[in-house]
Structures are given as structure tokens and as C-alpha cells.
Design a protein around this nucleic acid. Structure first.
Ligand SMILES: [Mn+2]
Ligand SMILES: [Mn+2]
Ligand SMILES: [Zn+2]
Ligand SMILES: [Zn+2]
Lengths: 135, 135
DNA sequence: TATAAAATTGTAATGATTACAAAATTATGT
DNA sequence: ACATAATTTTGTAATCATTACAATTTTATA
């Protein structure tokens, strides 16, 4: 993955901060929060500001290379994978997993009344790892 | 709909505030926010406190007679309809609509790795009313 | 190199939610 | 009915994530 090129082709000037933040998002698929991103990167970029993380993620979202995962009321997570997929959060370990889904299988009724542009599917429950450990 | 009975059978003592708040939620299906609920009810119950609205909604959720709709990052909405359904938000008019969905049609891959207990489906786009008006 | 534009940063402001303790209401036992 | 305990409601203060904004730094342009 050529991050500089990816940013450039999406009209984002590839500054050091932007490259590092996108690289972090792409490599860390657990859908991190702003705080996690900041905490993990500040040792690498000592001058990094949390405002920059907010600004940069907003820029990524506006330019379509990042999306938000709001599976929980009180935390916004970020995702660099733009292919359509669903999310599962285990309420035991707190991990958020990607779920493959065939959107063509989704059959809604009365959908002729709406023009759907974006679909978010959020599942919650227990992951197998937690189910096994608990028993 | 007998609200007093509904609260009682769900282990919620039916105080005036609780009855009015649930009644409001049940009658106003547009998925209101805490602020909307408070603003609309305070004329009816002049002593009402916003803290009570928060407390009461949390109580409803804990006892399974209300759920949250977090289709947008920055606003929590509430819903007294507990039958499984999806939500659509029109980004033109801002309305949040209920969508009937047959959950049995949902086919996820690799779902053997998870025990799903709750499913939230959020759709966004334009409602027909807004599409027609714009053209 | 000088100047302008863009990006980053730190701090302050905002706004939603929660914590908490006092006041009010309701239930219980005599 | 009265006293006391338990529950509910309320108002205020604290918390926490996010945004606004202006100063500083970096990058681009002539
Ligand atoms: Mn994902
Ligand atoms: Mn609904
Ligand atoms: Zn788990
Ligand atoms: Zn609309």
C-alpha cells in the first residue's frame, strides 16, 4: 500500500501527520478511537496535537478514504476500509470485528419510498473467544 | 395502550413523569432526542428536570421497553417500538423513518464465530418527499 | 530570499451526559 | 394518622469529547 499515492489521488496533500495517521488506521484494523490513534502516534510524532488528529480524520472522511463506526453511543471509531462491510462488537471483550456481508441479500420492504445512499449494519453480542473462556 | 400497566409489568413504578415520558415516546414515532422530549413535556410538567428525562430513559432501556437510535454520531434518539426494524435518515429533511425488515433475510458470512444478540441497521439517503421537492 | 498559502498546534469554548446531594414524594409499620 | 424509611425527582456542578479560533510553523510560489 502506497500511502502517499493514496492520499494524493484523493486530493489530500501528504503531510507527515496525514501519512502516519492513515498508515496507522490502515494497519490497525480494530477501529481505533481518536484517543487511541493519538496515544499510539504521539511517541512517533512528539509534536502531534489531538486537534490535528480530529482535523485529519475529518479530512479523510470528507474525501472518502475513511469512515466512522458508531456502534456505541459514546465512542466514535474510525475505519480505513471502505469496502462495504458490517461490524460486530463483543460486549465482553469490547473488540469490534469486521463482518463480510452480501448487501444484495438485504431485502427491505417499502424501500421504494427512499433512495438509500449508505448502509450501516451494527451487530452486538459475544465473540466465540469470550464464549469459550467464560464456560 | 395502557401505559401504567406496561410500566408496571416491566418492573417500573409508574410515576407521573415516567408515564408522561413513555406516553410521549410511544405517541411520537419520529425518534426524538432528550432535548425534544424535555422541551415538549416541560409545559405539561413545569417542574420537570432534564436529569429526570435522562434517568427515566436509562431506566426504560435497562428494563427493555425503549431502545436508542444512534444513526448519527452526534445525537442519541429514543424509540419505544421494540419490534425489530431498521431506520432510515434523510439527510435532506433530517427525518428518521422506520423501515420494516425481515431479519431472516440477513445472510452474513463467517457468523459462526459470533453469537449475535442485537442488530442495528441504519440507512441514509434521501426520502421521496425531498427528492420530489428538489426536482 | 521574500511573501503568500496551507497545515499544525495549543488553548479556550461548547455542549451533551453524568455525578451527586438536597428536596420532595411515596411507602411502610405502629 | 404519625413517624420513619425508601424511592423518586430535581438542580447544580463536574466530566468528557468535540469544535472554534488564533498563533505558530511549515510549505509553496514568485
Ligand atoms: Mn470495519
Ligand atoms: Mn424506530
Ligand atoms: Zn469477545
Ligand atoms: Zn427528506
Amino acid at each position: 500500500m502506497d500511502f502517499v499515492n493514496h492520499l494524493s489521488t484523493n486530493n489530500i496533500k501528504p503531510s507527515l501527520q496525514r501519512i502516519k495517521i492513515f498508515e496507522y488506521l490502515y494497519d490497525n484494523r480494530e477501529h481505533p478511537t481518536v484517543d487511541t490513534i493519538y496515544s499510539d502516534l504521539v511517541s512517533d510524532i512528539p509534536t502531534l496535537s489531538k486537534t490535528t488528529v480530529y482535523n485529519t480524520l475529518k479530512l479523510f472522511i470528507d474525501n472518502g478514504i475513511t469512515s466512522t463506526v458508531t456502534i456505541e453511543d459514546n465512542e466514535v471509531r474510525y475505519d480505513a476500509i471502505m469496502e462495504e462491510h458490517a461490524h460486530f462488537k463483543c460486549d465482553a471483550c469490547g473488540n469490534v470485528y469486521d463482518i463480510e456481508i452480501d448487501m444484495s441479500d438485504l431485502k427491505f420492504k417499502k424501500m421504494n419510498a427512499f433512495k438509500v445512499e449508505k448502509t450501516n449494519i451494527y451487530l452486538k453480542g459475544k465473540c466465540n473467544k469470550c464464549l469459550i473462556t467464560k464456560n
